[in-house]
Design a protein around this nucleic acid. Structure first.
Length: 266
DNA sequence: CGCAGCGCCTGAAGGC
DNA sequence: TGCCTTCAGGCGCTGC
C-alpha cells in the first residue's frame, strides 16, 4: 500500500525518464476513476512531482495529470503494453515506451486538472504539509492536531496535519513516540516526539526503497525491503522490541492498530 | 464545517 | 477439495 516512501521511490525513478516525453496516445479502464488519463493526450511532460501520496505530472499546456496509487497501484515504463488484466491505464510516449498504470483493486484514481486547481480532489486540496518537506514543523503539527477531537491515528490518515502517512508508517511512528493509538489529544512535547518519529520512519522507509508486504513494486518492478525493519506493524502477539511485552492490536475507526500496551500507555 | 459511516475493489487466508 | 466469510485499507461521498 503505497505511502510517502513508496510513492517517492517511484517518483525518483520515473521523473528523469518522463521529463520531455510527449504523450502520443492513452487508454484507460472504463471507470471514471481512470478515464481522465486520456485527457493528457497530445501534451508533453515537464516534470513529475509529489504532494503526500499524490503524484503530479506537470504538462506543457498548464494542466496537471494527478495520479493516486490507492492500495495496490503501481507505475512502470515498458517497451509495450501487455494483456495484464489489471492494467487500468497506459500512456504511449514518444521513443517507443509506454507508461503503464496497474491497480488490482481499483482504489487508485487519475485526474487531469488545471495546474493547482485541486477543488475536485478534496484530500489533496485539504492536506497538510508533506512529511518530508521543511514546511512540516513540530509546532505546526501540534497546532494542527489540536484542531480535531478525532483519534491521533485517524487524524494522521486524514492527511490533514501532515501528508504522506498511511497505517504502516503511522503505526511505526506511534510506537517509537510511545503514544497510544486511542489518544485524541497529546501534549506539545508528545507531538514533537511524534513529529520526529514520523520523519525518522519515513526516511528509513525511503532509504529501504519502501515496504513490500504483498503488492508494492517500484517502477522497475522490484520490491522494497523496509518490511524487514518494521518494529510494530503486523507484529501483534510478538514481543515488543523495547520491553518484550507482547504487542496487541485493536480496531479503531475501522483501522487495525498494533501497539505496545507497556510503551504506549493510554 | 467536522465527522461518522459506508462503499468501492479483489485476492489471500481461514473456517467448516 | 470447495465453498463461504472475513480481512486488508486510502479515499470519496453522503448525511447528520
Amino acid at each position: 500500500m503505497p505511502e510517502l516512501p513508496e510513492v517517492e521511490t517511484i517518483r525518483r525513478q520515473l521523473a528523469p525518464r518522463l521529463q520531455g516525453r510527449r504523450i502520443q496516445d492513452a487508454h484507460s479502464h472504463e471507470s471514471e476513476k481512470f478515464t481522465p488519463a486520456r485527457d493528457a493526450i497530445g501534451t508533453t511532460i515537464q516534470a513529475l512531482s509529489r504532494k503526500g501520496k499524490y503524484l503530479i505530472t506537470s504538462l506543457d499546456d498548464g494542466w496537471e495529470l494527478i495520479i493516486h496509487l490507492g492500495m495496490t497501484g503501481s507505475l512502470a515504463l515498458a517497451p509495450e503494453v501487455t494483456d495484464d488484466p489489471y492494467i487500468r491505464a497506459w500512456w504511449q510516449l514518444n521513443g517507443d515506451e509506454v507508461l503503464v498504470y496497474r491497480d488490482v483493486r481499483r482504489f487508485g484514481r487519475i485526474r487531469c486538472v488545471s495546474a493547482g486547481q485541486y477543488d475536485t480532489i478534496p484530500t489533496l486540496a485539504a492536506q497538510g504539509p508533506d512529511a518530508l518537506s521543511p514546511d512540516f514543523t513540530a509546532e505546526g503539527f501540534y497546532q494542527a492536531l489540536r484542531k480535531s477531537r478525532r483519534r491521533i491515528p485517524t487524524q494522521l490518515l486524514s492527511q490533514r496535519p501532515v501528508a504522506g502517512v498511511g497505517n504502516i508508517y503511522g503505526t511505526e511512528a506511534l510506537w517509537i513516540a510511545g503514544i497510544h493509538p486511542a489518544k485524541r489529544q497529546i501534549s506539545r512535547a508528545a507531538a514533537a516526539k511524534l513529529h520526529t518519529a514520523l520523519v525518522q520512519v519515513l526516511e528509513a522507509g525511503l532509504a529501504d526503497g519502501g515496504t513490500t508486504l504483498r503488492d508494492y513494486r517500484n517502477a522497475d518492478g522490484e520490491q522494497g525491503s523496509h518490511q524487514h525493519a518494521l518494529a510494530c506493524y503486523g507484529r501483534s502477539g510478538q514481543p515488543c522490541l523495547r520491553c518484550s511485552v507482547p504487542l496487541q492490536h485493536r480496531t479503531y475507526d475501522a483501522r487495525t492498530l498494533t501497539f505496545c500496551p507497556q510503551c504506549q500507555p493510554r
